[in-house]
C-alpha cells in the first residue's frame, strides 16, 4: 500500500517540522520582546517618547499572537508522540 505509507511519511514529516517550529518559537518571542523595545525612544533625544499605549499594543499583541501560535502548534502535535518525532528528526539530521 504505497499510498498509505506515503501518507504516514508525510505525517511524521509534518510532525517534525512542527516540532522545529515549537523549538523556534521562544527565540522569535525573545527577539520581539527583548530586542525591539530597546529601540524605542525614551524621549531623551529629539524624538518624543514612544507612547505607552503603543508599547502596550505591541507587547500584548505579540503576547496574544504567541499564545495563539503556541496553541495552534500544540493542537497539531497533541495526539502525536513528541519524543518519537524528535528522535526521528535527530537521526535523520
Amino acid at each position: 500500500m504505497p499510498r498509505t505509507s506515503l501518507f504516514l511519511e508525510r505525517k511524521s514529516y509534518r510532525m517534525r517540522r512542527i516540532m522545529d517550529a515549537i523549538r523556534f518559537m521562544p527565540f522569535v518571542c525573545a527577539a520581539l520582546w527583548m530586542v525591539v523595545p530597546l529601540m524605542w525612544s525614551g524621549g531623551q533625544g529629539a524624538h518624543a517618547a514612544t507612547p505607552l499605549s503603543a508599547a502596550l499594543w505591541y507587547i500584548f499583541g505579540i503576547w496574544a499572537l504567541a499564545v495563539m501560535v503556541s496553541f495552534a502548534l500544540w493542537w497539531r502535535i497533541r495526539s502525536g508522540d513528541v519524543d518519537a518525532a524528535v528522535s526521528a528528526a535527530d537521526t535523520s539530521a
Partner: peptide, 8 residues
C-alpha cells in the same frame, strides 16, 4: 508614565 521609559 505615558511615555516609554524603560532602560534597555
Amino acid at each position: 508614565i505615558g511615555g516609554w521609559q524603560a532602560q534597555g
